[in-house]
Simulated scan of single mutants.
Amino acid sequence: MEQDAELRALVNSRDVSAVLATRARIVLWHGEGRRRKDIAELAGVSLPTVDRWVRRHAEHGLAGLDDRDRAAPRVQVPPRVRARVVALTRTSPPVETGLSHWSTRGLAGYLKRVEGICVSWSYVARVWREEGLAPHRHATFKLSKDPAFAEKVSDVVGLYLDPPGGAVVLSIDEKTQIQALDRTQPLLPLDFGVTEKRTHDYVRHGVTNLFAALDVGTGRVIGECRPTRDGANFLAFLKKAVKPHTGKEVHVVLDNLSTHTTPEVEAWLEENPHVRFHFTPVGSSWINQIETWFGILTRQSIRRGTFTSVNVLIKQIKDYIDTWNVDAKPFAWTATSEEILAKVRLVQTNIKKLVDNNAK
């Protein structure tokens, strides 16, 4: 939804205060159906505070999250405008604009013409730089060169929309190189004897790799952090993920990576015929539902977190998974394989036209 995108933009923005970001998180968590007491615990606020910001957002939208009773310094461009710029940038331009992608002037002009929001193209450019956005380089999704793209899409989407009766569908992948960044440490000169590797003005204490499996039918997640990502660790996690479903047919959606197809994994699959792999097309991780969950984990738990060690990072991930599973709900997959394939054909046609026009 458009409002959800704008709320997430507030949460992720560097120019938004921690207080406003927390209010946006409260509304997002409420929209996900989480319980009031869980939201209060996650946000570190009282139950009445949760009710207040949910009500304010319902009545006034994003503007309701601004605490106008406090003497805050005047902001030249309101946070809601920045959130709108980010949200629009991350979507394709409306068909009636005739644009294949947003430009800074095109987006600024659209906001003024259609929504009555006046910002300069230079402001849009600054937001793009700060948020790492480059709509002229990225499409809504990457076109796969997999020759079996259509067959794989139909196979995976069929599992989502019409799973075999009594079967379990698991979406599995690994989120690699998650950094334990300590954002509270000052940046000291090298001659102070500080030896930690730094990322910008943060101290990095190490990384971990998260193996995770989403039960597509229930929304529950099993996760495990391991120091390395290889075939042996993947197989160990795979056994853990399917163990709760002993006696059932298990369908696993995953990327066709070398760590997922080692001889040991193949041998285990032969010994366990009730487990079947369904590979997503090459370059199409967006079709794997666990990737959606990884995005939520990053926004809500990792991106703004401060971790003084890898163990602290691992504990936070574990706690987040435990909290998620308290009131887990499955993602609602709505796109049919026919709709996806039709969109791909349309994009391919537009690209061909663009290439032909440039060749003239």
Rank of each mutant, 00 (worst) to 15 (best):
A134C: 04
Y123R: 10
L159F: 06
V153I: 07
K145S: 12
H136N: 09
R126K: 13
P164A: 07
K152I: 00
L159D: 05
P186G: 12
L188I: 06
D155Q: 10
E174K: 15
T176A: 01
K175V: 03
I172D: 12
D155H: 10
I172Y: 13
Q177S: 09
L181T: 03
A139D: 06
A180W: 14
G165Q: 14
K142R: 15
F141I: 01
A167I: 08
A125I: 02
G158D: 00
R183L: 07
A180G: 12
A125C: 07
Q179S: 02
D146L: 09
Y160R: 11
E151S: 12
Q177W: 11
Q185H: 08
R137G: 01
K142W: 06
A139T: 09
H138Y: 09
A180F: 14
Q177H: 14
F149C: 07
L143F: 05
L187S: 14
G165F: 10
A134N: 05
T140F: 14
L188H: 15
R183E: 00
A139F: 05
G166W: 07
E151M: 06
A150H: 09
L161P: 01
L133P: 06
G166I: 01
H138W: 06
Q179L: 09
W121S: 11
D162W: 03
V157T: 01
L143A: 09
D162I: 06
G166E: 02
F149N: 08
R129I: 08
I172F: 10
A180N: 10
L188G: 12
G165L: 14
P163L: 11
S120E: 11
E131P: 08
T184L: 11
R137D: 03
S144G: 10
G165Y: 06
L187G: 04
S144W: 02
P163S: 14
A180C: 11
V124W: 08
A148F: 13
G166S: 04
D182I: 02
